[in-house]
């Protein structure tokens, strides 16, 4: 009997030889315990076990866990779904930018013949696909038929309209910046009075997307806060339910990090599994939309296809979920767990 007690004294703690004693300063004990290999092993083993047991605990109350997961999933899926749609539509308009045309208005003193020759030269450029030349007479006819001011024009002595070269950029010119560069270079050609790029509506559309992007971000932030609060509240209840256990653990020498760990892992699992469900929701919604979208695309003779969550977006979703879960749990633990002290 006597042997049994003394043999068990931890060999690593030199202070306990024949007579048990409390001699070491606690800080040194803490430090040396952390350096011991067996302690390190035990530390990771506890992390592993806690991660596992907190997940098992969530599955042991499947219905209430599922409800929390679904709430988190919906809150994460909404901004994620908006982001995916926005990415899709932005990709679509990027194609449109390149399909815009550039109109070159010639100076009035440039003869139609010279202007036509210029148009043929422009056509040879690598970044130009085709040109369409409108001479002054054609321009006047077009104006008359479109504007309805034909009668007024009859009073004028001579044709006030210039000839126009309409340039269709090559397919290598895809975005607004490249369009502007091309337009500027064409505008410097001698004989050209002014250049008009048909980009206004694309710019407006982009501005609209900027607004939508910001709104999505704002929604994401708000819902992120909501997720933190939901998880925080759920963890608070879990802490209340396990109050006795927390007290006992603290009484037998559990440190604050040790006591916090299961709750932080619980928050982590709420976030991660919630993010997985959000992924399913977003992909489910995309699948549901893909039929009508393809039909619409085919009506517009477009090969556009809805693209789903990329690998990066999936990773981001999971990381954000895990982070929000841990943050919510940390908040609850800070507020409620550290207050629980044995009395």
């Amino acid at each position: 009997m006597k042997d049994a007690v003394q043999r068990g004294a931890k060999p690593s703690q030199g202070n306990r030889r024949s007579q048990p004693a409390i001699n070491e300063t606690p800080s040194r004990q803490g430090a040396s315990a952390g350096l011991e290999q067996s302690s390190l092993e035990a530390y990771f083993s506890h992390h592993r076990q806690t991660a596992k047991s907190s997940l098992i605990r969530l599955f042991s109350t499947p219905l209430s866990s599922l409800m929390t997961w679904l709430v988190i999933a919906v809150a994460l899926a909404l901004p994620m779904g908006l982001l995916v749609l926005l990415t899709n539509v932005t990709g679509l308009t990027a194609d449109l930018e390149g399909s815009s045309r550039i109109s070159l208005y010639m100076k009035l003193d440039v003869e139609d013949q010279a202007a036509f020759q210029l148009s043929q030269e422009i056509k040879k450029r690598a970044d130009v696909d085709s040109v369409h030349f409108i001479n002054r007479v054609e321009a006047l006819e077009e104006f008359k038929s479109i504007s309805g001011w034909g009668d007024v024009l009859a009073y004028l002595d001579n044709n006030p309209l210039p000839s126009v070269i309409v340039v269709q950029p090559d397919s290598s010119v895809t975005n607004a910046g490249q369009m502007e560069t091309l337009a500027k270079s064409l505008g410097e050609t001698p004989g050209v009075e002014s250049v008009q790029v048909d980009l206004q509506w694309v710019k407006r559309l982009n501005a609209l997307f900027e607004v939508l992007g910001r709104s999505t971000l704002a929604i994401a932030l708000l819902l992120g806060v909501a997720v933190i609060l939901i998880i925080g509240n759920t963890i608070r209840l879990a802490i209340e339910n396990r109050r006795d256990e927390i007290l006992v653990v603290k009484l037998v020498g559990g440190t604050d990090p040790y006591v916090r760990r299961p709750f932080l892992y619980t928050g982590f699992w709420y976030g991660v599994v919630g993010a997985m469900l959000a992924w399913l929701l977003v992909n489910g919604a995309l699948w549901w939309l893909s039929g009508p979208v393809n039909q619409m695309a085919s009506l517009y003779y477009s090969r556009f296809q809805l693209s789903g969550l990329s690998l990066e977006a999936t990773g981001l979703l999971l990381v954000v979920g895990a982070f929000l879960g841990c943050a919510g749990a940390w908040m609850a633990v800070k507020r409620h767990l550290d207050e629980i002290e044995p009395r």
Binding site: A33, E36, S38, S39, E41, A42, Y43, S45, H46, D244, E245, L247, V248, V249, L251, V252, G253, G254, T255, Y258
Partner: peptide, 25 residues
């Protein structure tokens, strides 16, 4: 102050787990 949701073994093991004793020990 026993924890009724775990076995006798787990109750007694609690202080050792907390102190970071290796699992096999």
């Amino acid at each position: 102050q026993l924890l009724f949701d775990r076995t006798v073994f787990d109750n007694v093991a609690l202080p050792l787990e907390i102190a970071g004793v290796a699992p096999r020990e």
